[in-house]
Protein backbone atom coordinates (compact mmCIF):
# COMPACT_ATOMS: atom_id res chain seq x y z
CA UNK A 1 0.00 0.00 0.00
CA UNK A 2 1.48 3.30 -1.10
CA UNK A 3 1.30 5.99 1.54
CA UNK A 4 3.17 9.22 0.87
CA UNK A 5 4.21 11.93 3.23
CA UNK A 6 3.72 15.50 2.05
CA UNK A 7 5.47 18.26 3.95
CA UNK A 8 3.94 21.72 3.65
CA UNK A 9 6.64 24.20 4.61
CA UNK A 10 5.62 27.28 6.58
CA UNK A 11 1.95 27.34 5.58
CA UNK A 12 1.49 29.81 8.44
CA UNK A 13 3.47 32.36 6.45
CA UNK A 14 3.42 31.24 2.85
CA UNK A 15 -0.21 30.60 1.97
CA UNK A 16 -1.06 33.30 -0.46
CA UNK A 17 -4.22 32.35 -2.27
CA UNK A 18 -5.37 28.79 -2.36
CA UNK A 19 -2.13 26.87 -2.01
CA UNK A 20 -4.15 24.34 -0.09
CA UNK A 21 -5.76 23.45 -3.42
CA UNK A 22 -2.45 21.95 -4.51
CA UNK A 23 -2.12 19.87 -1.38
CA UNK A 24 -5.74 18.73 -1.67
CA UNK A 25 -5.10 17.73 -5.29
CA UNK A 26 -2.02 15.63 -4.46
CA UNK A 27 -3.87 13.84 -1.66
CA UNK A 28 -7.16 13.28 -3.50
CA UNK A 29 -5.56 11.93 -6.65
CA UNK A 30 -3.80 9.31 -4.54
CA UNK A 31 -6.92 8.49 -2.53
CA UNK A 32 -9.04 8.09 -5.66
CA UNK A 33 -6.56 5.38 -6.71
CA UNK A 34 -6.72 3.55 -3.42
CA UNK A 35 -3.47 5.02 -2.14
CA UNK A 36 -3.02 7.58 0.58
CA UNK A 37 -0.95 10.47 1.81
CA UNK A 38 -0.54 12.23 5.06
CA UNK A 39 0.17 15.93 5.12
CA UNK A 40 2.38 17.47 7.71
CA UNK A 41 2.97 21.12 8.27
CA UNK A 42 6.20 22.63 9.39
CA UNK A 43 5.45 26.05 10.80
CA UNK A 44 7.50 28.91 12.19
CA UNK A 45 6.76 27.84 15.73
CA UNK A 46 7.86 24.25 15.17
CA UNK A 47 10.68 23.18 17.40
CA UNK A 48 10.73 19.56 16.21
CA UNK A 49 13.82 18.52 14.26
CA UNK A 50 13.69 19.31 10.56
CA UNK A 51 13.82 15.82 9.12
CA UNK A 52 13.19 15.07 5.46
CA UNK A 53 14.21 11.39 5.51
CA UNK A 54 10.64 10.07 5.33
CA UNK A 55 9.24 12.94 3.25
CA UNK A 56 8.09 12.23 -0.32
CA UNK A 57 6.86 15.63 -1.50
CA UNK A 58 7.80 19.06 -0.17
CA UNK A 59 5.51 21.99 -0.92
CA UNK A 60 6.47 25.66 -0.55
CA UNK A 61 3.83 28.26 -1.35
CA UNK A 62 3.81 31.97 -1.94
CA UNK A 63 3.61 34.91 0.43
CA UNK A 64 3.82 38.65 0.63
CA UNK A 65 7.29 40.24 0.54
CA UNK A 66 7.13 40.80 4.29
CA UNK A 67 6.26 37.17 4.97
CA UNK A 68 8.95 35.97 2.58
CA UNK A 69 11.59 37.84 4.52
CA UNK A 70 10.57 36.08 7.72
CA UNK A 71 10.49 32.70 5.98
CA UNK A 72 13.87 33.00 4.31
CA UNK A 73 15.58 33.25 7.69
CA UNK A 74 13.86 30.08 8.84
CA UNK A 75 14.44 28.24 5.58
CA UNK A 76 18.14 29.05 5.53
CA UNK A 77 18.52 27.07 8.77
CA UNK A 78 17.49 24.00 6.76
CA UNK A 79 19.38 24.82 3.59
CA UNK A 80 21.65 21.78 3.77
CA UNK A 81 18.86 19.25 4.30
CA UNK A 82 16.72 20.76 1.55
CA UNK A 83 19.60 20.76 -0.93
CA UNK A 84 20.47 17.15 -0.16
CA UNK A 85 16.81 16.17 -0.45
CA UNK A 86 16.57 17.73 -3.91
CA UNK A 87 19.86 16.26 -5.12
CA UNK A 88 18.68 12.86 -3.92
CA UNK A 89 15.64 13.14 -6.23
CA UNK A 90 13.14 14.30 -3.62
CA UNK A 91 10.01 15.86 -5.14
CA UNK A 92 9.52 19.52 -4.40
CA UNK A 93 6.85 21.92 -5.62
CA UNK A 94 7.59 25.60 -5.13
CA UNK A 95 5.12 28.26 -6.11
CA UNK A 96 5.62 31.99 -6.50
CA UNK A 97 7.50 33.22 -3.42
CA UNK A 98 8.64 29.67 -2.76
CA UNK A 99 10.06 29.54 -6.29
CA UNK A 100 12.05 32.74 -5.74
CA UNK A 101 13.43 31.42 -2.45
CA UNK A 102 14.93 28.38 -4.19
CA UNK A 103 17.31 30.66 -6.08
CA UNK A 104 20.46 32.49 -5.06
CA UNK A 105 18.74 35.72 -4.09
CA UNK A 106 15.75 37.99 -4.54
CA UNK A 107 16.87 41.58 -4.99
CA UNK A 108 14.26 44.06 -3.80
CA UNK A 109 14.49 47.83 -4.13
CA UNK A 110 16.11 48.38 -0.76
CA UNK A 111 17.44 45.00 0.23
CA UNK A 112 18.35 41.55 -0.97
CA UNK A 113 16.76 38.39 0.40
CA UNK A 114 19.17 35.47 0.40
CA UNK A 115 17.83 32.29 -1.15
CA UNK A 116 18.44 28.58 -0.63
CA UNK A 117 20.74 28.28 -3.64
CA UNK A 118 19.12 25.02 -4.68
CA UNK A 119 18.57 26.33 -8.19
CA UNK A 120 21.13 28.40 -10.06
CA UNK A 121 18.68 31.25 -10.60
CA UNK A 122 18.16 34.75 -9.24
CA UNK A 123 15.28 37.20 -9.05
CA UNK A 124 15.15 40.97 -9.24
CA UNK A 125 12.21 43.16 -8.46
CA UNK A 126 10.69 44.73 -11.57
CA UNK A 127 8.68 47.91 -11.89
CA UNK A 128 5.28 46.59 -12.81
CA UNK A 129 3.64 43.50 -11.31
CA UNK A 130 3.06 40.79 -13.88
CA UNK A 131 -0.53 39.71 -13.45
CA UNK A 132 -2.83 37.55 -15.51
CA UNK A 133 -3.84 34.18 -16.84
CA UNK A 134 -1.07 31.98 -18.20
CA UNK A 135 -0.90 29.15 -20.70
CA UNK A 136 2.33 27.14 -21.09
CA UNK A 137 3.39 24.44 -23.50
CA UNK A 138 5.30 21.93 -21.43
CA UNK A 139 7.44 19.20 -22.99
CA UNK A 140 7.86 17.66 -19.55
CA UNK A 141 4.21 16.68 -19.30
CA UNK A 142 3.56 16.74 -23.04
CA UNK A 143 0.73 19.25 -22.95
CA UNK A 144 -0.56 22.57 -21.81
CA UNK A 145 -0.25 23.92 -18.27
CA UNK A 146 -2.67 26.68 -17.28
CA UNK A 147 -2.72 29.01 -14.29
CA UNK A 148 -2.55 32.54 -13.00
CA UNK A 149 0.54 34.60 -12.24
CA UNK A 150 0.94 37.65 -10.00
CA UNK A 151 4.54 38.60 -9.29
CA UNK A 152 6.74 41.65 -9.04
CA UNK A 153 10.00 39.70 -9.39
CA UNK A 154 11.75 38.84 -12.65
CA UNK A 155 13.45 35.48 -12.37
CA UNK A 156 16.45 34.64 -14.52
CA UNK A 157 16.90 30.89 -14.83
CA UNK A 158 20.27 30.75 -16.60
CA UNK A 159 20.85 27.33 -18.10
CA UNK A 160 18.03 25.61 -16.22
CA UNK A 161 15.24 23.87 -18.09
CA UNK A 162 12.02 25.85 -17.86
CA UNK A 163 8.73 24.23 -16.84
CA UNK A 164 7.26 25.39 -20.13
CA UNK A 165 7.19 27.86 -23.01
CA UNK A 166 4.82 30.78 -22.54
CA UNK A 167 1.93 30.59 -24.97
CA UNK A 168 -0.03 33.31 -23.16
CA UNK A 169 1.10 35.48 -20.24
CA UNK A 170 4.40 36.92 -18.97
CA UNK A 171 6.40 34.02 -17.52
CA UNK A 172 9.66 34.22 -15.57
CA UNK A 173 10.82 37.67 -16.63
CA UNK A 174 8.37 38.95 -19.24
CA UNK A 175 11.07 38.59 -21.90
CA UNK A 176 12.54 35.13 -22.28
CA UNK A 177 9.26 33.44 -23.17
CA UNK A 178 9.83 30.76 -20.56
CA UNK A 179 8.10 30.02 -17.28
CA UNK A 180 9.24 28.19 -14.18
CA UNK A 181 12.01 25.66 -13.71
CA UNK A 182 12.02 21.88 -13.87
CA UNK A 183 15.11 20.44 -12.19
CA UNK A 184 15.44 16.80 -11.11
CA UNK A 185 12.13 16.32 -9.29
CA UNK A 186 11.64 19.98 -8.54
CA UNK A 187 8.76 21.89 -10.11
CA UNK A 188 9.14 25.62 -9.48
CA UNK A 189 6.72 28.12 -10.98
CA UNK A 190 5.00 31.48 -10.70
CA UNK A 191 1.64 29.85 -11.43
CA UNK A 192 0.14 30.32 -8.00
CA UNK A 193 -2.83 29.10 -6.07
CA UNK A 194 -4.45 25.95 -7.31
CA UNK A 195 -1.96 24.99 -9.99
CA UNK A 196 -2.47 21.24 -9.82
CA UNK A 197 -6.28 20.76 -9.98
CA UNK A 198 -6.47 22.20 -13.51
CA UNK A 199 -3.25 20.43 -14.51
CA UNK A 200 -3.84 16.81 -13.52
CA UNK A 201 -0.98 15.55 -15.68
CA UNK A 202 1.47 17.75 -13.82
CA UNK A 203 0.07 16.51 -10.52
CA UNK A 204 0.38 12.90 -11.60
CA UNK A 205 3.90 13.54 -12.91
CA UNK A 206 5.02 14.73 -9.48
CA UNK A 207 3.19 11.88 -7.72
CA UNK A 208 4.76 9.30 -10.03
CA UNK A 209 8.27 10.68 -9.46
CA UNK A 210 7.73 10.67 -5.71
CA UNK A 211 6.41 7.11 -5.66
CA UNK A 212 9.21 5.82 -7.92
CA UNK A 213 11.82 7.25 -5.58
CA UNK A 214 10.43 5.10 -2.77
CA UNK A 215 9.36 2.12 -4.94
CA UNK A 216 11.70 1.90 -7.98
CA UNK A 217 9.65 -0.89 -9.58
CA UNK A 218 6.41 1.12 -9.47
CA UNK A 219 4.70 0.66 -12.82
CA UNK A 220 2.86 3.99 -12.96
CA UNK A 221 -0.43 5.54 -11.90
CA UNK A 222 -3.59 4.08 -13.31
CA UNK A 223 -5.79 6.53 -15.24
CA UNK A 224 -8.77 8.07 -13.46
CA UNK A 225 -11.69 10.11 -14.75
CA UNK A 226 -10.24 13.52 -15.53
CA UNK A 227 -13.02 14.80 -17.78
CA UNK A 228 -13.77 17.77 -15.53
CA UNK A 229 -10.11 18.67 -15.04
CA UNK A 230 -9.41 18.47 -18.77
CA UNK A 231 -12.46 20.61 -19.58
CA UNK A 232 -11.34 23.24 -17.07
CA UNK A 233 -7.83 23.20 -18.55
CA UNK A 234 -9.03 23.41 -22.16
CA UNK A 235 -11.42 26.22 -21.32
CA UNK A 236 -8.44 28.40 -20.28
CA UNK A 237 -6.33 27.29 -23.24
CA UNK A 238 -9.09 28.19 -25.70
CA UNK A 239 -10.10 31.40 -24.03
CA UNK A 240 -6.57 32.79 -23.97
CA UNK A 241 -5.45 31.70 -27.39
CA UNK A 242 -2.94 34.29 -28.58
Amino acid sequence: MIDLKILHLYPDLLNLYGDRGNIACLVKRLEWRGMSAKTEKYTCDDTKPFDLSDVDIVFIGGGSDREQKIVCHRLLEHKKQLKEYVEDGGALIAVCGGYQLLGKYYKLEDETIEGLDILDIYTEQGKKRLIGNVVLESDMIGGKIVGFENHGGRTHIGSHTPLGRVVYGFGNDDKSGYEGVAYKNVVATYLHGPLLPKNPRLCDYVLTRAIKRRHPDFSGLEPIDDALEITANEYIVNRFKP
Binding site: G18, A24, I131, G132, N133, F148, P194, P197
Partner: peptide, 9 residues
Protein backbone atom coordinates in the same frame (compact mmCIF):
# COMPACT_ATOMS: atom_id res chain seq x y z
CA UNK B 1 -10.85 39.98 -9.85
CA UNK B 2 -9.50 38.04 -12.83
CA UNK B 3 -7.89 35.52 -10.54
CA UNK B 4 -10.19 32.85 -9.15
CA UNK B 5 -7.54 31.14 -7.00
CA UNK B 6 -9.36 32.42 -3.93
CA UNK B 7 -12.04 29.77 -4.50
CA UNK B 8 -9.63 27.34 -2.86
CA UNK B 9 -9.53 29.49 0.28
Amino acid sequence: GRDVSWLWD
